[in-house]
Lab assay of single mutants.
Amino acid sequence: MSGIALSRLAQERKAWRKDHPFGFVAVPTKNPDGTMNLMNWECAIPGKKGTPWEGGLFKLRMLFKDDYPSSPPKCKFEPPLFHPNVYPSGTVCLSILEEDKDWRPAITIKQILLGIQELLNEPNIQDPAQAEAYTIYCQNRVEYEKRVRAQAKKFAPS
């Protein structure tokens, strides 16, 4: 494992614990031996107030490669969400998460999670990743928002 990646992720964890947006979660997972795995984080993004996503808490896994922060983490909703920019596998399609697009090593975990929260309610229809959600979003916004509200209710924190 890269010392650069681990040191950056340790800084990220410290900064997150000191200050993070209300309702968001970002925690490194534990290895079988109980030690912390900084390369694999369990996160959760709350649906934004005043949107059909409100009330939901959407679980996301963030996986970092050894060359982080040169390369972005892979962000994957578990379980996958109904959304035009979420692949059926759950992987998020967002330009700041793509090395050859808008990724920059200075982007923080907090910025990534806030960017994904923004994307939930403002899909990028130029870059669809899920045919069904994309089609319904474009053709029947009322039905799309109904499905999103049902999903938010399903993923409401207990």
Rank of each mutant, 00 (worst) to 15 (best):
K101L: 13
M1V: 10
L9N: 12
L97H: 11
E98N: 15
N85R: 03
L6V: 11
I45E: 02
W53A: 01
R17K: 10
S95W: 06
N124V: 03
D33I: 03
I125W: 10
F64L: 11
Q139T: 12
D67N: 11
T91L: 14
P128N: 03
R61H: 10
K48H: 08
N85G: 01
N31R: 09
L57V: 08
C75K: 00
P72G: 08
M36K: 07
V25C: 10
K59N: 12
F58W: 03
G34N: 07
R13D: 03
P105F: 01
P21D: 04
I112F: 15
A44M: 14
H83P: 02
W103F: 11
F64P: 06
R149E: 09
L114F: 12
S95H: 00
A15D: 15
E122H: 10
E12H: 05
G23M: 02
R149K: 12
A150S: 12
D19V: 07
I45Y: 06
Q130A: 12
A5M: 13
R149L: 09
I116R: 05
K154T: 11
I136R: 06
L6G: 10
V25P: 04
N40E: 15
T108N: 14
A10R: 04
K101C: 14
R61S: 12
S95D: 01
P73E: 02
A26K: 05
W41C: 00
D33V: 01
Q126G: 11
K48Y: 02
D19M: 08
N121P: 06
P28F: 05
Q151M: 02
L9V: 01
K74N: 15
N37F: 13
F77W: 01
I96S: 12
E78M: 14
F77G: 00
I107C: 15
P80T: 13
W16K: 05
V148Q: 02
P46G: 07
V92C: 08
A131F: 03
A129K: 02
P123R: 02
P52A: 14
K65Q: 14
D33W: 07
P157Y: 09
A152H: 02
Q11C: 14
Q139D: 13
R104Q: 04
L38V: 09
D102P: 02
G3W: 12
E118G: 10
R147E: 10
L81W: 02
F24H: 05
P52Y: 11
W16A: 05
K101E: 13
V86A: 08
N140R: 10
S70H: 07
I112A: 09
F77A: 00
D100G: 13
K18G: 07
Y68R: 07
Y137V: 00
C138D: 09
L6I: 06
F58E: 05
